[in-house]
Design a protein around this nucleic acid. Structure first.
Lengths: 338, 338
DNA sequence: GTGAAAGCGCTAACAG
DNA sequence: CTGTTAGCGCTTTCAC
């Protein structure tokens, strides 16, 4: 392993000069820097993150805490965060909570408190009081993407407004019997319930505003899963009940499930039933799905940027940031015919 | 920040004893360990990864190099790797290459050579000679998941056999005019082309073995994308050409695109066209897709385990590991009718 | 079993 | 502009 001293010896200078040159500090002559860089390159030097981290107290990495990496929303945020980190030459420590319970606690404490990163970006997690307290004690800058958490900054969308806007789109098309496929009850992931609750709340608000009384029987559970959602609609259709004229799914994936179920039972979308989702998943265009687009990639970008700015010494942004959503009209919604 | 010395002072012992107790070394009395652990807990001690890493030369983390996190296969492998790391109390440094070019080189060197992890698990990447050389110089244990790379161990499936088996399933059902949707030409990701090439090769092998001459016109590009694949089939259908009686897509996502396109044009699956994929994506059941299942989660588990064992001092596994695939029959394939 | 001392490779004052 | 001197918090000989 070649260290800073090896370079120093090689070029006949002191270690501190080498250290400074390598970090491109102003107090070193350009000529010396050249020499140092050349030697470092030639010798194949790589800075020890452990050593420099030990003395500076900075890891040059940020911890990303996620409930899972295999859901579209999360993977998009991760990509967004990553794009910013790369630019700032920061590394990413991925902390996958992998569900609730003891395992979660261990994962949580393990990497966060071990100071693997200089800041923490959490995704869609509702922290327990204990976790929040532990986080605070680390004194690390924290931001949450996707869900407002009391006492912490967040970047995300206004879930209630999104739910209302999606529902309103259907109402504007004349629909009055609108089924809502909600997400949640997904214990496996231990993620926040605020998202599905907000979207549902928006749905009910929009209905009421249009003079329609929300009917609890018109809300079914989809668990943010395509499969679960498809099954739910299968059940509904096979029950022989009157079908709603429109469906608002709290996520695109659940909307896909609904569309597949409807088609499978010979129902046309949007001829028989209109369907709208939230997300603008990359598969949505293939399903011709009308949806309320959010940009999780951008949410990741913003979250990371706020953290990075703070680590650079810029004044901390204390306020949350609500990003806009916009309606993407494709073919899955149409004026009511029944 | 509470360190090892604080604990030592608190309980009136030396730092070395505390250090040993915390690591559960045998040379400390059980009673002392209890006391130390209690104090550590009470004081809220967390070991500094930088400090212990500096002296031991180990980071207790593994670098995971991926071309992207937003494709199903990768996210599954990541989850698998993560499950093993968590058990071993290792952290994960995620290195997202994010495409080809300069950026890729920077990302590559940055985190790997900076010794963020004690071993490297790479996903589906074809390393350039230069990269391979740099990797070797780090002397870190390396393993590749998903694609054989010359000179490196790998964990994955036999792509050729998988392609052949999927095709054979269609042949067994009497199909002779089988379209193949291939993946690749996805420069954005800079991933290995061996996977799609292997599957295509298997497809051609199976055809030949059945006395069918492979027709290059019956291979279309799907870029491992649902959208791209759907468009490709749209084009085929709208061209008015004779339709094949079956389609073998090199990934489930591309099979989904094909199914949507077929349905959209009033063609029944499997009535008019049979469709088979490779993967067993979690959405496949919703599409009633027959597919050749692989378990990327398990691939991640195996890859991580091999690395972890090696880091524990167990003899290094030098051989690659080929995992089995199996046919999952759902409703998208049927005997030929035309 | 436990303690004292010597670093791991780097950065950060402080001189010059 | 460059060199010297201390550590960062932990592990690891080597004594006792």
């Amino acid at each position: 392993m070649v260290g800073i001293e090896d370079i120093a010896r090689d070029i006949g200078m002191s270690a501190s000069t080498v250290s400074r040159a390598l970090r491109d500090l102003p107090a070193v002559s350009e000529k010396t820097k050249e020499i140092v860089r050349a030697a470092a390159d030639r010798l194949g030097y790589v800075r020890s993150a452990a050593a420099s981290g030990l003395v500076t107290g900075r890891t040059m990495a940020i911890s990303l805490v996620v409930p899972s990496v295999s859901l579209w929303f999360y993977s998009q945020v991760i990509e967004g965060v990553d794009s910013q980190l790369r630019e700032a030459d920061y590394d990413m420590a991925l902390v996958n909570l992998g569900g609730v319970g003891v395992e979660r606690q261990r994962a949580f404490r393990r990497s966060l408190l071990r100071h693997r990163g200089d800041a923490v970006l959490a995704l869609c997690l509702d922290f327990s009081d204990e976790e929040r307290e532990e986080l605070r004690q680390t004194r690390l800058p924290v931001i949450v993407v996707g869900t407002p958490v009391s006492g912490l900054r967040f970047v995300g969308i206004d879930e209630v407004a999104a739910g209302a806007q999606a529902t309103q789109h259907l109402i504007d098309l004349g629909h009055r019997d609108i089924l809502h496929i909600t997400g949640g009850a997904e214990e496996r992931l231990g993620l926040s319930l605020r998202v599905p609750q907000g979207r549902r709340w928006g749905y009910e608000q929009a209905l009421k505003a249009a003079g329609i009384t929300p009917n609890p029987a018109r809300v079914v559970e989809g668990r943010f899963s395509m499969e679960y959602s498809r099954t739910a609609i299968d059940t509904l259709i096979e029950s022989g009940e009157t079908m709603p004229t429109a469906i608002f799914a709290a996520s695109d994936e659940m909307a896909f499930g609904a569309i597949l179920s409807l088609n499978h039972h010979g129902l046309d979308v949007p001829g028989d039933v209109s369907v709208i989702g939230i997300d603008d998943h990359e598969m949505s265009s293939s399903f011709y799905l009308t949806t309320l687009a959010q940009r999780p990639f951008d949410q990741g970008v913003h979250g990371a940027q706020i953290l990075l700015d703070e680590l650079c010494g810029k004044p901390a942004v204390r306020t949350s940031r609500v990003l806009p959503v916009h309606l993407v009209t494709r073919g899955s919604t149409a004026p009511v015919t029944r």
